[in-house]
Amino acid sequence: MGEKGQDRRARYRLVYALLAAALLGAALLNVGVGSVSIPVGRIVGILLGRVDDPTQAGILWKIRLPRALMAALLGGGLSLSGFLLQTFFGNPIVGPFVLGISSGAKLTVALAMIFLLKALGGASSWALIGAAFAGALLATGLILLLSGRLKHMAALLVAGIMVGYICSACTDFAVTFADDADIVNLHGWSQGSFSGMSWENAGVAAALIALAGIAAFMLSKPIAAYQQGEAYAQSVGVNVRAFRVALILLSSVLSATVTAFAGPISFVGVAVPHLVKRALNTSKPLVVIPAVFLGGAVFCMGCDLIARTAFAPTELNISTVTSAFGAPVVIVMLLRQRRGTGA
């Protein structure tokens, strides 16, 4: 038994080491590559406070660092949100985007932008996050109503797609009657992007995502029990009702934060947890949760790098890139699932 434990631990260490290395590499690339290229030595220098070139330092501090940090934070948060939803529904194919939760948050954020801009001339991060949270909860509630007690994977997906369409339709409706300036603003945002992130944004996002992330990690124990189904979780002493509420709230906070800042981002929440679980060869939450966060951070930084540089100076939507990498993973999962369980 001990031998096996060591095998497993060696594997965990390896995966974590790789993730950490990838995170560092992605961070350096994200900060260094662009229309103005900054070599690694210079990056370290600027971070340590040696400013040789004020332009580069400005680009680094004002544009690239907050953007890279946001990509990492929001990517991690989105993946974690996906993992929590997968636990909740006992279904590996669900995630905040697939279930229409991102679209729900998008709808309320759009409404908040249009009306708050009109009323107050601007909307704070907190107002947008609040709106996104309400939208995420609303969409999740709708999913729960639609799916009822159906545990069937396909039914859940259909419900999610429906909710997504309903929310998008409402968003389009609102946008149609909004003023021109807002539409431009909204259009860019509603496709998902990490551009234009400020340190203020990053601070708010970091605080929320860190809190929700730690809370999710502290739920590792009941999550492990809940992975065996509701009844078995209850039989070992999990307060299932409270636990389910906690899961929904946490996953909603996470996906709402992401959507409020970067718009809806597709497939990260499904693909990353799946890849990380495969790499670790376990779904034990204690091991998986931090790795899912790291994996999401790496994945989104990588995707943002591609979005920014592939067709520079034109920037791609972040969802275009995450879909290109995430959707195939989800398709493979669907095919495997059918073969595996037949359910």
């Binding site: 038994m1 096996k4 006992g90 590996p92 124990k221 492990a224 029990a225 992975q227 065996q228 189904g229 078995y232 070992v236 002493g237 999990v238 679980k277 495969r278 060869n281 376990t282 779904s283 034990k284 369980t341 359910a343």
Partner: peptide
């Protein structure tokens, strides 16, 4: 039970919850 990527020992261990 349809657990993902869990060994028999993992399943048994949850009894210690």
């Amino acid at each position: 039970m349809r657990p993902e990527l869990l060994t028999c020992r993992d399943i048994v261990s949850t009894g210690r919850y």
